[in-house]
């Protein structure tokens, strides 16, 4: 059974498309963020900084463009952090018992859920990206079609690594906890600081030193770095601050996410192997 994870993957995807309200809100939420918060903030920043914000010779992007990458990152974080919720449901009231008593390897269970999570994250991020561009986000400016294509692939790879890591964290939580309330509480507690201690809404350069240092180990920062590098470029400025990403820096971010996701995957696998559903 080479593709043993496939039934798990297909079931998850079917559920994703079956619950229309959930599906709609998972797209609408980030879009509303972008539309309201993004547009409002962008308007304000642009007014405050109108005169001296432009650095000559550097690609200048609007705050909306800058922030769109952050909203994509945050959305992927939120979605996957809560992604284990259905496993908790399956564990307490559903078919995890059936799965655990079957010959399906535990590894395939995790791979199935994770690959569905990656697919969902891709769909979500693509939709925000397209909607952002409609709203006036200037992604892929000055890139050749080939470069754009490669950038999109890179973008998806970053999203995949990050989604896997946080989905696995969420699965581990779901397997160890018994109450949905507890699960939700912990997830919220984890996501809030991750969101604000990152470069999602502002460049790291503007953060107080301690916050800046914490943000550097925050995986969300590395995801958003990757997204900005792929969608905007290696050198640009926004709201009066200059951003330069070297390719080693971006490669480091990617490896950071890949290693992080592998570690989380292994921890999740160990947790699944120990869990008793009876």
């Amino acid at each position: 059974m080479k593709f043993g994870f496939l039934p798990i993957y297909l079931r998850d995807m079917r559920r994703f498309f079956r619950f229309k309200h959930q599906l709609l809100s998972s797209f609408l939420q980030p879009i509303l963020w972008l539309a309201f918060f993004g547009m409002a903030m962008a308007g304000n920043f642009d007014r405050i900084l109108s005169s001296n914000s432009v650095i000559p010779g550097v690609l200048e992007v609007s705050y909306l463009t800058f922030m769109c990458a952050g909203i994509i990152g945050a959305t992927i974080l939120f979605t996957n952090m809560y992604g284990g919720f259905s496993l908790m449901f399956d564990k307490n009231w559903g078919i995890l018992r059936e799965i655990m008593a079957s010959p399906l390897p535990r590894r395939d269970l995790i791979i199935g859920i994770a690959s569905a999570a990656i697919t969902k994250s891709w769909i979500q991020s693509a939709i925000i990206l397209i909607f952002g561009i409609i709203l006036g986000v200037t992604f892929f400016i000055g890139m050749s079609p080939l470069r754009t294509f490669i950038s999109v692939i890179g973008f998806f790879l970053f999203v995949a690594a990050f989604a896997t890591a946080f989905l696995c964290i969420s699965l581990t939580l779901a397997l160890r906890m018994d109450s949905p309330e507890g699960f939700q509480g912990i997830s919220t507690l984890l996501t809030m600081p991750l969101f604000f201690l990152s470069n999602s809404l502002y460049p790291l350069e503007g953060l107080p030193p301690l916050m800046g240092t914490i943000a550097l180990v925050n995986p969300l920062t590395h995801l958003i770095t990757g997204i900005r590098y792929c969608t905007i470029g290696e050198h640009f400025s926004s709201i009066g601050m200059e951003v330069i990403y070297s390719s080693t820096e971006v490669l480091f971010s990617f490896l950071y996410l890949v290693i992080f996701s592998i570690v989380m995957f292994v921890i999740t696998l160990k947790t699944v192997e120990k869990v008793e559903v009876s």
Partner: peptide, 21 residues
């Protein structure tokens, strides 16, 4: 009862067949 409320009868049986290969 160990069933997924949101699956259909045939999906339930097919899923079972699938995880047993």
């Amino acid at each position: 009862i160990t069933l997924d409320r949101d699956m259909t009868v045939s999906e339930t049986l097919e899923f079972h067949g699938d995880i047993y290969g």
